[in-house]
Amino acid sequence: MKNRLKVLRAERDWSQQDLAERLGVSRQSVNAIETGKYDPSLPLAFRIADLFELSIEAIFLRD
């Protein structure tokens, strides 16, 4: 699944580690989600959406 995580993170000038700490996950998790290797669970997708104050659909895009 495609997503806008990298763009949203860059807009806030956050590193992958910064975002990982804000979400309470590992940096490798952020990297795997950003590169589309791993689709997060619904609870984690909601945490990401809450952090960026956006809806899930505004971050994760259908293939």
Binding site: S26, Q28, S29, I33, Y38, P40, S41
Partner: peptide, 8 residues
């Protein structure tokens, strides 16, 4: 482990 990706 509380990191779902690492658990996977």
């Amino acid at each position: 482990i509380d990191d779902e990706y690492v658990r996977m």
